[in-house]
Amino acid sequence: MKSVRRVTQVLEVSQAGAIVPIDLALPSEAKECFGLQAIVTGLFPGVESVIDFGEYSVSFNGRDTHPVHQLVPYESAQTRQVSTTRIGLLPLSTPLVSGSPVTGFYRDLERQQEPFIPYQVRISFNLITE
């Protein structure tokens, strides 16, 4: 494999049910996105690990390519301690047009109890570069 760059997009989620836009420019030397991972960053007392804490949708090349509309899980520290797996990448094979935007959204699925605790979602783009 040629050179790889990993670009992290950080989204701030400030209220229950929020829809947060994704809008970024990947490095111009990026030729292909070969993997994605979205991960919730926060501690939520009373929330067990859930598979549908949020959902996200990502389009590449000015919405010409829409390879991902996927759930974002939440894993509590207790669950993580006994986990027998490691977090992997969601595999993609999406060619990129240089300089074209990446767009989409993240939506909170209201799995927290009151009061709402603001949190971040980190989306990691794994890119093959020239």
């Binding site: 990993r6 670009v7 992290t8 993580r80 986990s83 027998t84 797996t85 490691r86 977090i87 990691s124």
Partner: peptide, 20 residues
Amino acid sequence: GQEVFDDDHDLRLITCGREV
């Protein structure tokens, strides 16, 4: 000098559960 992970790279992507 080559960037492997940017400064926001989530640590959980390179750690794992104790049972792995």
